[in-house]
Design a binder for these strands. Structure first.
Lengths: 120, 120
DNA sequence: AATAATACATAAGCATTTTATGCATAAGAA
DNA sequence: TTCTTATGCATAAAATGCTTATGTATTATT
């Protein structure tokens, strides 16, 4: 398909999502047993009610990197004559998920201390 | 001073802070009338109890950019024979602060929907 | 006298993301 | 039946934003 005139995907107009993609992928795969790339984009869109749309140009390199780091394993399947690469979280991936979620919680806490110091 | 052997600054070990610096600067200047660069680094360190240390290599270019965009204005003063560049928020800067804080709140909400869907 | 703190600045390199493509099959609409 | 949309993967150039590593200069502390 020609995408010349249909490219409208983005991570959101805000730059804050930079650095969050790995956390999102790991968390989804930590609780969903196995998922393929396209499925992840749809899941994220659904969970965020269209707020957040992951671009393929960001997603696929990120998945490859996580696999290379041993945090995900991959299994290729053919469904309806179409290729799917199913990703599964590894043991190390589970540990890293915990780390990433801790970092996210810490980030939120720190930012709230900065922008809303009365509540901190 | 030689920094060859004393360079230990960072934005935190987490990559999540990427994209947050502008928000932090604007918010601080929105509530503090005027501040200079070094003061900002110290204030952030204090408010986050050492959690977050802004590097000069990130801060100064960010301040210059905000000034170029008309969100900050600058006034140079000499104190104790040392140069200080005081930054003040402009009217447009105040509007942008509101936008950035809204984006931060939205980001936090969206991420919580992703990593903790039960609470969303 | 040497080191740490204060105060600015820039530039190379790195990681992540956007933007823009490319290929291919299946389903739905015109 | 032909065009478009949806499904599914991929990569590469460019932009972005930060880290790392410097540089200069003054004042305070050890």
């Amino acid at each position: 398909m020609h995408k010349k005139f249909m490219y409208i995907c983005f991570m959101s107009n805000s730059k804050l999502y930079k650095g969050s993609l790995t956390t999102i992928i790991l968390k989804l795969l930590n609780e969903n047993d196995k998922m393929y790339g396209y499925e992840i984009t749809q899941k994220v869109k659904a969970l965020t009610k269209g707020q957040l749309k992951i671009t393929e140009g960001a997603l696929y390199p990120a998945l490859h990197k996580l696999e290379a780091e041993g945090l995900l394993s991959v299994e290729v399947k053919k469904v309806d004559n179409r290729l799917r690469k199913y990703y599964k979280i590894t043991e190390n991936g589970e540990k890293e998920t915990t780390n990433k979620l801790d970092e996210l919680a810490e980030y939120i806490k720190t930012m709230q201390a900065l922008v809303n110091p009365k509540l901190a």
